[in-house]
């Protein structure tokens, strides 16, 4: 027993029979929930995606649903849109919080605490509420922005009517909901860089710009990577904001893949098998992304 515990500190002394029962009793709830509400649905999703299931009967149709899905123009459009969303939102979502974090870093005391709270608040506001607020702010008639434009003597913009401005409105709403959180996150990374690095760089005569390039950015590499991964992963699954703000319009210019799938819920003309095939394609996409990320991060981790 003594030998055992000295070999591996983490593993407790041999667990008795009673402990086995306790262990299973403690694990069964979570495992049962995962089984019923994740694994079983996943199994059904995969098997039924090979059929023309419509809730009552299902006939095996092979990969037909997949080939149809991959040729569907709306689904294509949704994928193009999601690439645009990523292009618009992710770089800004990493770079601006980085700059903001630099400014927040210097603040101490009450003012610093207040700004941290303020930065966090947008991220606890729900998608429904933020979409409602921004629809109002961007409204053509009584919106804040258009009223300001009008006061400045400019023409008003109907944000939700043009493809690009509709998408940018959604991106901005999403940015508002997330940038404070990323700023705090990057701030944590900045605070984690030892001051001695900067002192050494200053002794070597490095200016502010050089310190940024040679000290800050290399030290923040992991944080950037994580923000990037979270940003892309989150945007890939985006649905709520476009659904609530434009419902995919105008003319499918803001539709996303997940939203395309979700909308089939209320469309009785579509076979559920087809809908499931689309969602499995999305799953493959996101796991491929996750795998690539893991592949990219691994070599970096082993170096540390």
């Amino acid at each position: 027993m003594v030998v055992n515990s000295s070999v591996d500190k983490r593993r407790r002394t041999p667990t008795s029979r009673m402990d086995h029962i306790t262990a299973y009793a403690m694990i069964i709830p979570s495992l049962a929930l995962l089984g019923v509400f994740v694994l079983y649905p996943l199994y059904t999703s995969i098997t039924k995606s090979l059929t023309d299931w419509n809730f009552y009967n299902s006939m095996y149709v092979g990969l037909k649903n997949y080939t149809v899905a991959l040729r569907n123009p709306t689904f294509h459009r949704a994928f193009q849109n999601i690439l645009l969303y990523i292009l618009f939102s992710v770089p800004i979502g990493v770079v601006l919080p980085f700059l903001f974090a630099h400014c927040v870093k210097r603040l101490q005391g009450m003012y610093g605490a207040a700004i941290k709270t303020a930065l966090y608040i947008p991220s606890i506001i729900s998608g429904v509420i933020s979409s409602v607020i921004f629809l109002f702010i961007l409204d053509y008639q009584g919106g804040l922005i258009n009223n300001l434009l009008r006061s400045l003597g400019m023409t008003r913009v109907n944000f939700m009517a043009q493809p690009t401005s509709a998408m940018l409105s959604i991106v901005f709403t999403g940015f508002w909901g997330g940038f404070g959180y990323s700023t705090l996150y990057q701030l944590a990374g900045l605070n984690n860089i030892p001051d001695s690095y900067y002192e050494a760089a200053m002794l070597d005569g490095a200016g502010a710009f050089k310190r940024m390039i040679y000290v800050t950015i290399p030290c923040m590499k992991n944080i950037f990577l994580l923000c990037l991964v979270n940003g892309i992963g989150g945007t890939l699954m985006m649905m709520e904001l476009p659904l609530l703000m434009t419902n995919g319009g105008p003319n499918n210019a803001t539709i996303t893949p997940v939203m395309y799938i979700y909308k089939m819920f209320s469309d009785s003309a579509v076979s559920m098998g087809y809908m499931l095939a689309c969602s499995i394609i999305m799953m493959v996409f996101s796991s491929a992304f996750t795998c690539i990320v893991f592949f990219l991060i691994k070599p970096d981790k082993s170096l540390e």
Binding site: L42, M237, I280
Partner: peptide, 8 residues
């Protein structure tokens, strides 16, 4: 991802 199991 959630969407893979939403319907089922």
């Amino acid at each position: 991802p959630n969407i893979a199991i939403l319907l089922t």
